[in-house]
Write a protein that binds this DNA or RNA. Structure first.
Lengths: 189, 189, 189, 189
DNA sequence: ATGTAATCGAGACGGTACGTCACGTCTTGTT
DNA sequence: AACAAGACGTGACGTACCGTCTCGATTACAT
């Protein structure tokens, strides 16, 4: 079993960077473990020693990139959600970040293990943060008391995610605003 | 430049059937072109002659399976949408159909070409059917006149899709009903 | 079974010509049945209807090319053999004819059937002609009475054939003369 | 740019052995790279990493099999050559060894590169050994001083090679003796 | 300071699937 | 019935990566 104390930080960073760069430059199809190792100047075994596979590397790369999902609470629920939705939509519209997310989604589809990891480490925090903000709004009487907060979160995040995955429309601030508008209308008292 | 007139219908059907069966039985990992060819009793070349790759085969298999996206219009918008949403959710919850969709999604992510095909041949019809039903409801005064129908469609389809992709919750009739309820609340006059 | 009466002479000639041309232009590696058919403007089946395979086509091409193996008999054995040997060596040195012969040799190595055909239709006549000339020389007392004529023929043809196959030396008139000289020395009374 | 220092000797031997065995057991038609790899318990890539193709494998197998071409020199030229010619003829008559040689000849005809290799690594040594023995004989006055040694070698090796390639006669000790007899008659003072 | 044990880079290994090529057969009109 | 055209099942080709496995050569810790 690997001795984490002796782990080379240089290699760890090089691998994650190489993975991100390759995704940005050549796309998912060229993102092979061998390519990551070569680009990072690292032996393949060093990757397999510390990660179970390609997907886990991407996940870690994305987790490192992702900032803390701290949501603003200015008291103005609509304004706060607009900020969040715009950020989410912008991230999906950004080619570099989007490539990583897309790659991770592919890996996710093939592995329940990884799917759970992604859900718990990456999504849950984000969704929980939104949920908390909604709960606060609900307590403040800005939402009906009977709304299911999980559904409410999905009403906000589901549409842009669907649009991004299936490329069925543009991902703009205007769109983000529209999603917030529509969702809040359904949730308001 | 294959001569489509001489194409063997027997082979075409055998290939699509084999692809569907393999997905149902052994999952995506075992869905290789060689396995499809072997199972269908067909040469690999016959697959490559008519489809650009594995993804296109899956797409065609799914398109053939998918019935016509004719939506009911009983006049009761809520009832009609509930029927549709329950069907969509059931499909996503069904392991067999879901496997095909999942496989197709993976292939999609690796090819813009295929992504466009999927969007136009598989998704657009479904989404358009929902949109038309909503438009009829809008004309009948059951929806506000100012709702953006594209957003409305996404409000219905986005949440279950998000939940399915990221496995963040159960996909049940109750859930479907909740999604319809919430969406209609936001769209009602 | 094919009805030889209806056979298309046009196709027959086109096929043999295409085979010869392809050998001359692109070499043996490109000499596929499909290439012959395409170049000849002929269906593949027309080839397989009349020949058992590629080798038989080449054989027929070569048989048609090869003139009658009539040997001169001027009474001067050395002069006659020199003429023949120079002709043989020249043929082996000629890239076009040599390509066909080489191709046929390859096919021969893989099929006893074809090897027998080549031996009987192509080689035997040539070797027999040489043998007859030697027999006449023997009768005229220009050869020892006890020489084995089959061996004598091989003493003339074997060396240049070996040299050609294995590319171990130049194939010139001088060389041909040397072979005749050496062989006759061994056969003379 | 494979790293020859890390090459697996076990694999190298297994591949060459498998190639020889397959030739002996099933013949050239079944001698595919895939069959060699399977029989040797080796990945195909391991073959392609170290040899350019099937032909080179056969060549190496034959080179390893072939003993050193050390010719006896008892002082009795006729006896020494008889030993050699009988060995050559026996080798050509032996189905197993002959299969390898035949296979190599086929491969040779398709590649100038390989042909040169075969000539230089396999044939040249053998022919040179014979040539040296003849040179010694010439020095000892057993051959005329003016004989061309290259021609003399071909007079010995050419006939049996021709007979073997074209299957025009039996390959026996008696035949070998006849060839030596005839050649020496032509070369004697 | 030195031994020792794990990590490191490199890359060969046994595999699996890829997408292509040509084989020889079969099928479909045309002549 | 032979023909041109070309789709078909078959099977080998040579390539790309997979994940595992040796190799010395660092490198960091415990003597």
């Amino acid at each position: 079993m690997p001795d984490v104390a002796r782990r080379s930080e240089r290699s760890r960073v090089a691998i994650l960077t190489a993975a991100r760069d390759l995704l940005g430059e050549t796309g998912y199809a060229q993102l092979t473990v061998e390519a990551i190792a070569a680009r990072a100047g690292v032996g393949k075994q060093t990757i397999y020693r510390w990660w179970p596979g390609k997907g886990a590397v991407i996940l870690e790369a994305l987790v490192e990139t992702a900032g803390e999902a701290a949501l603003p609470d200015t008291g103005d629920l609509r304004a706060d959600l607009t900020v969040v939705l715009r950020a989410i939509v912008a991230e999906l519209a950004d080619p570099a970040l989007s490539a990583t997310t897309r790659a991770l989604t592919i890996e996710t589809l093939g592995s329940d293990e990884l799917a759970a990891q992604v859900r718990d480490r990456l999504l849950r925090p984000q969704m929980d943060a939104v949920k908390e903000r909604l709960r606060a709004g609900q307590a403040a009487g800005q939402l009906r008391a009977d709304v299911d907060l999980d559904l409410a979160v999905e009403a906000l995040i589901g549409p842009p995610y669907h649009r991004w995955m299936l490329r069925t429309g543009p991902l703009t601030d205007t769109y983000a605003d529209g999603v917030v508008e529509q969702a809040l209308t359904g949730l308001a008292p």
